[in-house]
């Protein structure tokens, strides 16, 4: 009698986790036209993103601290994004774009632009 509810407690987070994963998998499909990189908890999410050539990617800062997105090769650089601010960049050239936060350079991400 005691074990049964405790087992439920173990199972339910897994179910929630599965639901969350399923939601995450479905998100890029819905957002294919407007891909977004969220900045939260000092991390770019998703950290790796693949888009089609000519796609605009929007960076949105959800932290209480400003961040900015800077391409390692200098091909783009946002202004400092305060909480809720966004920055969009259109990727017209095929290639791999590594980027980082100009204020917190340990924060890194990559956008792959496919033809």
């Amino acid at each position: 009698m005691i074990r049964f509810p405790s087992r439920l407690l173990v199972v339910s987070p897994v179910a929630f986790g599965l639901a969350a994963i399923l939601t995450m998998i479905s998100m890029p499909l819905n957002a294919a036209d407007q891909p977004m990189v969220k900045i939260e908890n000092f991390a770019f999410t998703p950290a790796v993103l693949t888009v089609k050539q000519g796609t605009a990617v929007t960076f949105e800062n959800d932290d209480d601290i400003p961040h900015l997105a800077v391409a390692n090769d200098g091909s783009f650089r946002s202004k400092a994004l305060d909480t809720g601010d966004t920055y969009a960049f259109t990727f017209n050239k095929v290639g791999d774009y590594a980027y980082f936060c100009g204020l917190h350079p340990h924060m890194q991400g990559r956008i792959t632009v496919a033809p």
């Binding site: 800077v70 390692n72 590594a98 980027y99 980082f100 100009g102 204020l103 350079p105 340990h106 890194q108």
Partner: peptide, 17 residues
Amino acid sequence: VHFIGLVNVVNLKAGGL
């Protein structure tokens, strides 16, 4: 006492400190 004010917040590099 010799005081030195340094700046370590410019030209930050990807992946760096």
